[in-house]
C-alpha cells in the first residue's frame, strides 16, 4: 500500500480559496488509509465549511472518485465528463495520482490533498502504519530471510548489525507522530539485522548472514527512474 497522510486543512484551503468550483477526486487504488468516495465527500464538506469560516461563501465542492488516479486512461475517461464548470481539482491520491491528473488535464490546476509518506502496511490493531519497502530496485529479501534491511535499518546498511544494536534493539528512536507532526510516542524497535540473524539461524542459513555484501549500485535507485515494459 502507498501510505498517505491528509494535509492540514489550512494548507488545502490555502490552495483552494481563490477558486469557486472545486472537484475533490478520491482514489480507490492503493492509498492507505483508503481515500474513496466517502473521503472525497467528507473533504468536500469540510472545505466548504472551512472556506465559509474564512469568509469565502461561494466556494462549492463536488466529490467523485476513480478506480486508479495513476492511470491516465482511467483519469481521462472517467473524469472528463465531470469537469464542466470546475476550476480546480483537489486530489486525494498519492503524488502519482496528482501528477497524472496534471498531465491529463493540463488546463486545470490540480492540488494535493495528501502527503505521500511511504510504501508500507497497516498494523490494524494499533493503527500504526509501518514502512516496508523502499523500492530500491534490487530486492535483497531472498538473502536476508525476508526482512528488508534497506527499509528497516535506519542506516540501510548491508553488513549489519552495526554497533548501535544493543540487546536486539536499534539505537535510533522510532517516533510516531500525530497529524501536526508532534511526536506522540517513541517505540524501541527491533534491530533489523538482529532479526535477520535470528531468522537465518532458524533457517540454518547463517552462511548468508556471514557473507560480505559489497556497496550498492546507487544508480539503480537514483531518481527519476525509467523502466521499459516489453
Amino acid at each position: 500500500m502507498i501510505i498517505v497522510k491528509e494535509k492540514p486543512l489550512n494548507e488545502i484551503l490555502g490552495f483552494l480559496l481563490p477558486y469557486e468550483s472545486v472537484l475533490v477526486v478520491g482514489c480507490d487504488g492503493c492509498t492507505q488509509p483508503p481515500r474513496g468516495l466517502r473521503e472525497a465527500m467528507t473533504y468536500a464538506m469540510l472545505i466548504e465549511m472551512g472556506a465559509k469560516l474564512k469568509g469565502k461563501t461561494n466556494l462549492k465542492c463536488r466529490a467523485t472518485t476513480i478506480p486508479m488516479q495513476c492511470d491516465n486512461h482511467i483519469c481521462s475517461t472517467t473524469l472528463t465528463p465531470q469537469l464542466e464548470g470546475i476550476n480546480a481539482i483537489l486530489s486525494l491520491a498519492c503524488g502519482v495520482g496528482v501528477q497524472t491528473l496534471v498531465e491529463v488535464f493540463p488546463e486545470i490546476p490540480v492540488y494535493p490533498g495528501q502527503n505521500t509518506v511511504f510504501i508500507g502496511s497497516q498494523e490494524r490493531e494499533g493503527g500504526i502504519m509501518h514502512e516496508k519497502c523502499k523500492a530500491c530496485g534490487e530486492c535483497l529479501l531472498g538473502e536476508t530471510g525476508g526482512i528488508c534491511p534497506i527499509t528497516n535499518c535506519p542506516k540501510g546498511i548491508l553488513n549489519g548489525p552495526c554497533g548501535g544494536c544493543v540487546d536486539g534493539k536499534c539505537e535510533v528512536p522510532f517516533e510516531v507522530r500525530d497529524e501536526t507532526g508532534k511526536v506522540i510516542k517513541t517505540i524501541a524497535k527491533d534491530c533489523a539485522w538482529y532479526l535477520i540473524y535470528q531468522r537465518l539461524k532458524k533457517l540454518n542459513r547463517l552462511d548468508l548472514f556471514r557473507k560480505y555484501r559489497p556497496p550498492r549500485n546507487r544508480v539503480i535507485s537514483s531518481s527519476p527512474r525509467l523502466l521499459e515494459v516489453v
Partner: peptide, 29 residues
C-alpha cells in the same frame, strides 16, 4: 573504519544520514 552512530543521536538530528557505505565496505574500499 567506522559505520558511525546515526545522525539522529547527535546534536544535528535533522541531518541527512549518508551511509553510502557501511563500516565493512569502508574497510573493503
Amino acid at each position: 573504519a567506522l559505520t558511525g552512530d546515526h545522525t539522529r543521536q547527535g546534536d544535528m538530528p535533522t541531518a541527512m544520514p549518508v551511509y553510502d557505505l557501511d563500516g565493512t565496505q569502508l574497510v573493503d574500499l
